[in-house]
Amino acid sequence: MNMKKNSSPQKEKPQMKKIMVVDDELDILEPIKETLERGGYAVVTASSADDCLKKVQTGEKPDLILMDIIMPGTPVREIIPKLGNIKVVYLSAVRISDGERQEIVKGKNILDFMLKPFELSVLLKKVNSIVG
């Protein structure tokens, strides 16, 4: 048997960053998923804040969660504290004041609030700046 010795240490494949996208509207979810996958991310989806929490509690470890606000089920505000230190960016058509936006992102794991509609390229840049 001829065993070839490795002349150099095998390089470890860098682990893909994982993004969880949470939205109840499929026509929003799918283009975001495709854009992020083309951007080199692993993507897992959820259809509500409850679904998001269930997936996190059963082992999903996303590096970032992109979350809609107006969805059926438990309000996102009640779910966010149960997600631990996972970073979150809100993606929503809800209109809030500048002061409210600053209040929401202050000192917690909510990093930003992106207003729908947005360019997918802008979303990808935002994700890259946070976890890339």
Partner: peptide
């Protein structure tokens, strides 16, 4: 309102 906060509407 279900999609705009009162603060936003008032401003």
């Amino acid at each position: 309102t279900f999609n705009k906060t009162p603060e936003f509407i008032l401003e």
